[in-house]
């Protein structure tokens, strides 16, 4: 068998793939931001809410952490229209990924809450800090330091997870790679370039996040 790689056939399509990568980044970013807000609400509810609310949030987190994300998105895409909620594939993917992220980020942020040192807070009180000052100068910086690494990891995972959108016909990076593959039949070239693009994206994101985490929050993060 003789395989000759012909990247030359693919390179003209690079801008097309890059456009897909841009959409991947957007989906990951939007779902992450939405998930962060859900997670903040969820973690607050779990830490301070009444019992019924904790049970409700617990069920939400349990459901989304114990079922495949793909099944969750299928459910939103195919089952919700029966209930009168029609959605574009892009919207279904975004909603699914946001809800899924919300569950994971609830757990991560709750861990941040429980890591607050009671004694450090007491020290803040005894030197005369108000509650707002304690939050601003002691609690938030502490939480950021503890949470920045796991949040960054989850963000990277979500960036890669956007490839699931291709199944629903969304033309993000993997979706466009599939299109290109069926046009050119240069599978090895197409998918190695696609994999390379994912690596570049995650490498840049990891490095930037580690620089921010180390620079601003004294988080323990490795820079590759």
């Amino acid at each position: 068998m003789d395989i000759t790689l012909q990247f030359g056939q693919i390179t003209p399509h690079l801008p097309y793939l890059l456009g897909g990568a841009w959409l991947s980044l957007q989906i990951a970013f939007l779902a992450f931001c939405g998930g962060m807000m859900l997670g903040l609400l969820g973690a607050t509810a779990l830490s301070f809410g009444p019992r019924w609310l904790r049970a409700l949030v617990g069920a939400y987190v349990g459901f989304f952490m114990n079922t495949p994300q793909l099944v969750q998105i299928y459910f939103i895409f195919f089952a919700l229209p029966d209930a009168g909620l029609l959605m574009e594939p892009y919207e279904a993917v975004l909603l699914g990924m946001t809800l899924n992220a919300g569950a994971y980020l609830t757990e991560i942020q709750r861990a941040g809450f429980t890591s607050i040192h009671r004694t450090e807070l007491e020290a803040a009180q005894t030197i005369g800090f108000s509650l707002m000052q304690s939050v601003r100068y002691v609690i938030l910086p502490h939480i950021m330091k503890v949470l920045f690494p796991p949040l960054s990891n989850h963000y990277i995972l979500m960036t890669l997870g956007t490839s699931m959108a291709a199944i629903f016909g969304v033309e993000e990076l993997t979706g466009r790679a599939l299109n290109l593959n069926s046009q050119t039949f240069r599978s090895i070239e197409v998918f190695s370039i696609t994999a390379g693009l994912y690596i570049v994206i995650t490498f840049i994101a990891t490095t930037l996040l580690a620089l921010v985490g180390r620079g601003f929050f004294r988080a323990r993060m490795r820079i590759l």
Binding site: Q125, P141, H142, F217
Partner: peptide, 18 residues
């Protein structure tokens, strides 16, 4: 009272992020 009386605890309770 917190401005007139200061305390040092058993554990140092320093702000770790500063």
């Amino acid at each position: 009272i917190r401005s007139r009386v200061a305390v040092v605890f058993q554990q140092y309770n320093l702000f770790q992020n500063m």
